[in-house]
């Protein structure tokens, strides 16, 4: 699975970075970026879902 951040929607709430720092980093402006190519290892799928479920701006998606 892959995680994706929509940079147009992200407003820097940093919920994803707090919940899943293995999957997300933040830039100097506090906006979220995915680490690497966004591939989610099986042990981190639950964390990824948590990040999706807590983004106030609906900026994160998880795809097959």
């Amino acid at each position: 699975m892959r995680i994706h951040v929509d940079a147009e929607k992200c407003q820097g709430h940093n919920r994803c970075y707090a919940l899943a720092p293995e999957l997300f980093d933040v830039d100097d402006y506090g906006n979220a970026v995915v680490i690497g190519d966004g591939t989610v290892s099986p042990d981190l799928v639950e964390r990824a879902k948590l990040a999706v479920a807590n983004c106030p701006e609906f900026a994160i998606t998880l795809s097959e």
Binding site: Q11, G30, L50, A53, C55, P56, E57, F58
Partner: peptide, 20 residues
């Protein structure tokens, strides 16, 4: 609560600058 998309720091371009 696991799923919590609260808007305490606002929504959109004016997201609270000091939220962190």
């Amino acid at each position: 609560r696991q799923e919590n998309r609260h808007a305490a720091f606002g929504l959109g371009i004016h997201r609270c600058l000091g939220s962190n």
